[in-house]
Every structure is written in C-alpha cells, then in structure tokens.
Simulated assay, not measured.
Amino acid sequence: MIRVALDAMGGDLGPRIAFDGAVEILSRYPDVVITIYHFPNPGLELPAPHERLSLIACTDVIDGDEEIVLSLFRRRNSTLYQSLSALAQRSSDVVVTLGNTGAMVALARHILGVLRPKLYPALIRELYSNPLRCLVDLGANVHCPPSMLVGFAELGAAYIEALSDEKPRVGLLNVGVESSKGSAVIRETDRLLASKIWPDYFGYAEGTELFDGDKNVIVCDGMVGNAVLKASEGLLSFMMSKFKGVDGVSSLFETFYQTERRHGACLVGVRGNLVKGHGRSDLSAMIGAIEYGIDIARADLYSAIEARLCS
C-alpha cells in the first residue's frame, strides 16, 4: 500500500479541496491509503468515513504568508509539522501539501534531514513527461553560489535517472550560449560542471530550450526558476483563454495542460518524498498533486536519489 500524508490546510481554496481530492484518489487507487492533517472548523463538513482514509485534527496552521522564524520549528501541532513527522517516522511514504513553500523547505530540512552535508534541497518541476525533462530550482533557494547550483544539477540528473530511462543531459540557464555571457556565479558554475565526470554537462541553455532541445535538466537559481515557471503557466492560461471555443486549438492546449505536466513540484535532497502543489490549486490540480506523490512513492524516489548521490 502507498501511504499518503496530506496537509489539508495550505491551499487558497481551503481544506475542502484536499478532502474532495482524497476521496477521488481513493476511488481510483485501491492500493492507496490517505491520512489527512486538518484544522477543525465547525462549519466544515468532513469527508464520509472510508476504510482507507484517516483524519488527524491539529491545533495549529502555518499560513502562506508567514516568515521563517525560529518559533516555526516549535510549532509541532501544525498540520505541516505533523505530516512531515509522519514521513520521518516512516508511517507515510509521501507528503503532499499546498502550503507555505519556505516553511515546507525549512521544516523538511529540520524534520527529515538532508541527504548529505552542503547539498541543498531543491524544488524540481517536470516541464515535459515524455521524454522527461525538468527545471531545478523553483524557489527553495534564492541566493545560490556555484557549489549550490552544481548540487542542483546532480539532484536533477538523479531525478531523471530514477523516474525514466533517459540519460541526464544538464544545461545551465543563461542569457546566451556564448562563454562570455552571464554573471560571475554562472560562469564559475559552468566551469565546475564542465569538470565533472557525472552528470553529463551540455553547457549553457537559453530560455528557448526549456521545453525542447537536447538538454533535459535545466539548472537555475530559485528566483529565476520561480519566475520562469509562473511566466510559463501564465502564458499557457492566457493562450487557453484566448483560444477558448476555437475547434481543435483550445482542446490541444487543454490536453497539454492535463496530460503533459504533473501538478506540483517535488522537493529533492531531503530524506523523504515530498510534493508541493500550487497554493491556487483547484480540485483537478489537487488530484494531480496527490497522483504525483503516489508516483514518486512507488518509485521510492528519495531512496533512489540517495543511492545515486551518497553511495
């Protein structure tokens, strides 16, 4: 059985999205059990009893706009802390949350631990599923020295190896492919990656190579990655709205959105499987984020990456 710990309190639309998503997942996957961590609300109707669904009421919620301060690590009764603790205790196989990204990363490092010293956890987003290609980092780390970006390349390459038959081909996102382009940090990262035996490094990647080309691991700092991702999502939504109702075109965009992109991002580099869904997720996105979590739990992604990077 795949055991999912679901933090119900992080999304903008409230816990109902998590409740309904969990019920739908249980109807689709007979080998999945879900534990929902929620904050009791007298006006909120809980899901109907199910033999593979458990509800754990918590007394605290970490809001989306809260800053990362020391007191965060003492809030053991929050839904996010409790779901991550279940993963650390191996009573669940994956955590899925729509909550505060900074809090999730900080608590995951604190509760689960990192795979190895000085290897910073990163958020990975799949840009395309067949063949698999991904972008790393998406916002777990904003200020990134060269050594951190090299670690992102390793995490992304291990992710590709664990979840596909593809060979990792790393590219470093830059303003151009010429050797003179980019900041001092980017140029030093390029030098370090070029000197490594693994993963295979294919040089700089421009923005035009995000969704197509020979590089399937695109590396950047979290500020750039987050901006790139949200700009791409915004453009897709804009195009879908503009072509809504146009025969063929609109259905093509909808098919791409539904089948070629997993919902959410995966935090890699910690000792456990963890999916971060978008705070604005609707029901279909919530279901997609849980399905993503099920997929990485089946692949035992965390263990595969640990074996690749720490053996």
Rank of each mutant, 00 (worst) to 15 (best):
H263A: 14
R76K: 15
K196F: 08
A48N: 12
Y81F: 15
S237H: 12
A86D: 15
G102Y: 04
T79I: 10
L193T: 03
I290R: 00
L235A: 13
P145V: 01
D20T: 13
L252I: 08
A162D: 12
A297R: 01
I160T: 11
D12P: 00
V217C: 02
L84V: 00
P47A: 04
C310W: 07
K215E: 09
G245C: 10
L127Q: 07
G213E: 04
S311P: 11
L236N: 00
D282F: 00
G277M: 00
L155P: 02
G279N: 13
N226E: 05
A22P: 00
A158W: 09
G222W: 11
L84F: 00
T35L: 01
N141I: 12
R109Q: 15
I218V: 13
I197T: 15
S232L: 08
D212V: 13
I62S: 03
A106T: 02
V246T: 14
R109G: 14
A108K: 07
L46A: 08
R271I: 05
N130W: 09
Y159D: 03
G293E: 04
R308I: 09
C220D: 01
D165V: 05
I68W: 04
G264T: 08
H143A: 15
T189Q: 01
E154A: 04
G113F: 02
D295I: 12
L192C: 05
D190T: 01
T208K: 15
E154N: 07
R271E: 14
G11K: 02
F256T: 10
E291D: 12
S78Y: 13
F238D: 02
R298L: 10
D295F: 12
A48M: 09
F211H: 13
A157I: 00
D137W: 03
G171C: 06
I34D: 00
D12Q: 09
G171W: 06
L123V: 06
V69P: 01
G213M: 00
R125F: 10
S83A: 15
D212F: 09
S281N: 07
S237G: 11
